[in-house]
């Protein structure tokens, strides 16, 4: 098996696919942390919301593409509501109260999802784009996974340009670097926070919508994904776009090859990687601030 090149190719693609899903989730979380210094524990719940709303849109309209487009917008709207009603009020209270509010939100959002969508796992029954199998050499491989990889890379490229080529990006970088100085230089930091928070929510919604055709959607999926996402954020380095990308790759590869090569340690591989990184490089692999 280990000498078979197709094993490495297929598992490599599996790693990449998982990594890109984790990236879509963790990038919003990490930039919110970098700017606003708090961790949105309800981020996973927004991912679940994206998947569930995406499911409803796809079932109602018959178009999964429409779900990819509208579900992130709907989740962004929910994020805006949360920001205005809860998070903004706690801006001056420091990071811990903000984290705790989002911890409480996990339970509220989860029950809201159960109330609206029930407890069964849901999957689109209509046509899914890229649902076929393609052959890489002689190996059959699900085309949809390649699509997820493409979405991840496109989002990374888009965010890279946004961050490095636009005024908003410059403001974000200034805010991450030193919020007070940025504010003194005339950057409307609160507005930047708000926009970044919305962008993070939208990406979580997109991740959910894109994951839904491959992995089904259910209330509670957000709690499950939260821990790996947090691990990616910490491993990659808080607040950094490339950190989130690299962290996702590290965890994607660890989980995939860990399960394939050392199945007995599959359950602890991720946590072992987390502890190792925290001990050897507590600031993460590519932190935004040194």
């Amino acid at each position: 098996m280990l000498t078979d090149p197709s094993f490495w190719l297929v598992q490599g693609l599996n790693s990449l696919q998982l990594a890109m899903l984790l990236f879509l989730l963790s990038v919003g979380l990490t930039v919110i942390f970098g700017l606003m210094n708090f961790v949105n524990l309800a981020h996973g719940s927004l991912y679940a919301l994206g998947a569930l709303i995406g499911y409803s849109i796809a079932e109602a309209s018959g178009s999964v593409f429409l779900a990819f487009l509208l579900a992130p917008l709907a989740v962004t709207a929910v994020g805006a509501l949360l920001y205005i009603t809860l998070i903004e009020r706690l801006r001056s209270a420091g990071p811990l109260p903000q984290v705790l509010v989002t911890f409480g939100l996990i339970f509220v959002l989860m029950d809201a999802q159960r109330y609206l969508w029930g407890s069964d796992a849901l999957g689109v029954t209509g046509d899914v784009p890229f649902s076929g199998t393609i052959h890489i050499g002689s190996e059959p491989y699900p085309a949809y996974r390649l699509f997820i990889i493409a979405v991840g890379i496109a989002v990374f490229a888009g965010l890279y340009l946004l961050l490095n080529r636009t005024r908003l990006g410059a403001e974000v970088r200034a805010g991450v670097d030193d919020a007070e100085t940025a504010a003194a230089l005339g950057v409307n930091v609160e507005r930047t926070f708000f926009l970044v928070f919305l962008l993070g929510c939208g990406l979580a919604g997109l991740a959910g919508a894109v994951a839904m055709p491959a992995f089904s959607a259910e209330a509670g999926m957000g709690v499950e994904i939260l821990v790996p996402t947090l691990v990616v954020v910490v491993v990659g380095g808080l607040g950094s776009l490339s950190g989130a990308f690299v962290g996702s790759l590290v965890i994607g590869v660890t989980l995939t090859f860990g399960t394939a090569l050392f199945p007995d340690f599959a359950g602890i591989a991720m946590y072992a990687a987390l502890v190792a990184v925290l001990l050897l490089r507590p600031q993460g692999l590519l932190p935004a601030r040194s």
């Binding site: 094993f7 998982l18 996974r145 090859f257 599959a266």
Partner: peptide
């Protein structure tokens, strides 16, 4: 035989590839 972790396994790709081989 293979026993993926009960919690947190969403991607069975690695296991399926291995079983096929």
């Amino acid at each position: 035989e293979a026993y993926p972790p009960l919690k947190g396994t969403k991607d069975y790709g690695p296991y399926i590839s291995k079983a096929k081989a």
